[in-house]
Amino acid sequence: MSDLLQKRLLIVSGKGGVGKTVISSALGLIAASRGQKVLLIKMDDQGRTAELFESGPVSDQISPLRDGISALNLDPITVVTDYFTKQLKIKRLVGHIIGSRLFQNWFRVSPAIKEMISLGKVWDLIEEKTWWRSTPVWDLILFDAPATGHGLGLLRLPEQASKLLMGPLKTNALGVQAVLEDAERTGLLLVTLPEEMPVNETVHFHTEARVQVPRVAQEAVILNAAAPDRFGETDADPATWSGPAGQAAMASMVGSALEAEVTNEAFQHAADVGQARASLTKRYRDELKQRIRLPIVEVPYMFSAAFGFKQLEQLSGHLERNLIEAGLIPAREASS
């Protein structure tokens, strides 16, 4: 039986706004609750991860979020400083140069260097071993990748860079490439939403990645915010069910519970919205199934006013059940 969580690196990719942060956090929770030491790697985290875990801020130094799960915000400038300090061994000088506005400007416009160095850092972390037992420090690294489009460029980068570079960076690029192309160790997850743009982009990314980085193992599509089909085949018009009297009774009960005024139209509106959501989900689920031959794992729409650790735990519970059902991870031992 395959187990997605036995890999060393899971790359979580998707268009901006589809919920990569939430999904990678939920995967981290699942793996950690199964006893793994998990590292969540972010690029440009803007405080959302800390909000989700209700923890301290995620910084450019590895810091714990919860039991068994730590996070790192990969800041290219920090990584490049570390890298050059290690290579050149003149810390103060490196600090001066890298701190200068000139270097920072140049570094930001120079193509691919920061991405390559960041990937090199991910590789370092995968290879990192404890000194006492020589076992990996991290059982599973979850890499919350930059938005697709740039994501594909990132996956292709090591191969391109290895052709362009010489010296230590070339070794680095080849190492990264070997990890990315090793299906035993690395898997790619595509996160999407039941909406037109995210679905199109996912299909495009999937197709392009199969051609351009054929050895990178695409594991599954994660369809986030899938709306429940509450109505099934039934007619959503509340008026046809219990008659005006039934509706009025319902409105008054709900109204008194919430100490607010509810009209019959409110139910009609909610029913319409709910049904529209469900039918969009169905349409895009079908489209994904038709166009991508990968398991499609759904995560339900979370209907709540706020989204913190409690909701994250609920969501990861759903995700875990659906991953088990899709055969991507084994069920838990009965004893645990």
Binding site: R230, M250, M253, A270, V273
Partner: peptide
């Protein structure tokens, strides 16, 4: 809990609508 009662009173055929209503109101409130 009262809403659960309303569900019971409204009968199962109203359940999807009531749940959709609650979903909607929770999202709207947030």
């Amino acid at each position: 809990a009262v809403l659960e009662q309303a569900l019971a009173a409204g009968g199962t055929e109203l359940e999807p609508t009531l749940r959709a209503f609650l979903d909607q109101e929770l999202l709207a409130a947030g």
